[in-house]
């Protein structure tokens, strides 16, 4: 499918014929008056900021008549959203952009089905950790047009500051290499991350596995030479069966440490951390049109069955003549 931009007529058609204010998820509608809205009318960035809508009808009319190039709402809740003042709390957000996945198996220039699927796998892993390790449950997933947004609204995390959010990001993406040396009663013991089937070491193991399985010989990684990347690819089948010990010994213990350090550092870019730690960010409004690629920003009910090229394509794309 050709991901070309939507023209003004197509935008107008979308907002008049296809879009419905009820398609905006409840988690946004029920806090409508506490959120700031922002719009990009010309495709040059969201310059129309500080918008507030007292009810869904005002928002409906605005979208219908202005048919913006892009629409955004704040992740933050404010007492005075028009002045971005009186910050109450902010959703905890993770932005997985298919174009920015650090190890992409497709090699495409923009986004394609392969990297969007890879992004979906990453989202799966992150959501599992949010639930299983961090015990969070009010989690919403949104297809953004070029990737995925994970939006968490559990009360336990919406009040936390940027520093705590950055710690959550690091935990989730596996950007710290877990220690392998432990001591007990004066004796030193070695426990590699892959021998610990729970907690952060398990998260790290999962992320490293995901990365190695997607490795490409042309990949560049800090502190990892091409020979090491080639070897990791050569022996990656051992990871399919979780034979980490064999994989490590084939690679060599010192080179293995280099490899996982390189991956840990790349993992930081699995999500756009700036989005996660920003307490006042605006995020693409679910249900709105991503005019840059002519796709709908869509709330996902079931990630397993969601297919962007089936569920997020506006009608006008099918009606295009060229």
């Amino acid at each position: 499918m050709d991901l070309k931009p939507a023209n003004p007529n197509e935008r107008r058609q979308y907002y008049r014929e296809e879009w419905n204010v009820k398609n905006i998820p409840d988690f946004i509608l029920k806090s409508l008056i506490q959120r700031e809205f922002g719009f990009d009318h010309m495709g040059r960035g969201p310059n129309d900021r500080y918008r507030v809508f007292q009810n869904t009808d005002f928002l409906r009319k605005f979208m219908r008549y202005r048919a913006p190039f892009a629409a955004y709402s704040s992740v933050a809740f404010y007492h005075k959203p028009r002045r971005r003042d009186g910050w109450i709390k902010a959703e905890l957000v993770f932005d997985v952009d298919a174009k920015d996945i650090p190890i992409r198996s497709c090699g495409c220039d923009n986004v394609c089905e392969i990297c969007l699927n890879q992004a979906k796998d990453i989202v799966h892993g992150l959501v599992d950790t949010l639930k299983g390790d961090l015990g969070l449950s009010d989690i919403h997933m949104v297809y953004s047009g070029r990737g995925y947004h994970i939006r968490v609204l559990d009360d336990q995390v919406t009040g936390v500051d940027s520093d705590v959010r950055s710690q959550i990001v690091k935990y989730l993406v596996g950007s710290d290499v877990p220690r392998s040396e432990y001591s007990l009663a004066g004796m030193k013991y070695n426990l590699e991350h892959f021998t610990i089937p729970f907690g952060y070491p398990q998260v790290f193991t999962d992320r490293v596995k995901q990365a190695i399985l997607a490795l490409d010989p042309s990949m560049e990684m800090d502190g990892v030479n091409q020979k090491l990347i080639r070897d990791a690819i050569k022996y990656k089948d051992f990871l399919e069966t979780d034979d980490w010990g064999i994989f490590r010994s084939k690679i060599g213990p010192i080179r293995y440490v280099k490899l996982i350090k390189g991956i840990a550092s790349l993992n930081l870019t699995l999500v756009d951390a700036k989005v996660s730690i920003d307490l006042k960010r605006i995020l693409r409004l679910p249900s709105s049109l991503h005019s840059g690629v002519s796709m709908k920003c869509t709330e996902i009910k079931n990630l397993e069955t969601f297919e962007p090229f089936e569920d997020a394509v506006p009608k006008f794309v099918y009606e295009r003549k060229d």
């Binding site: 299983g132 390790d133 961090l134 015990g135 969070l136 336990q156 995390v157 936390v160 500051d161 520093d163 705590v164 710690q167 959550i168 690091k170 935990y171 710290d176 877990p178 729970f198 907690g199 952060y200």
Partner: peptide
């Protein structure tokens, strides 16, 4: 999240804790 302050001031790292279901 009981350790919010400790995490915020980086007195401890979230990755140092053993967590399950929060």
């Amino acid at each position: 999240t009981f350790f919010e302050e400790l995490l915020s001031s980086r007195k401890i790292r979230l990755t140092d804790l053993i967590l399950d279901q929060g």
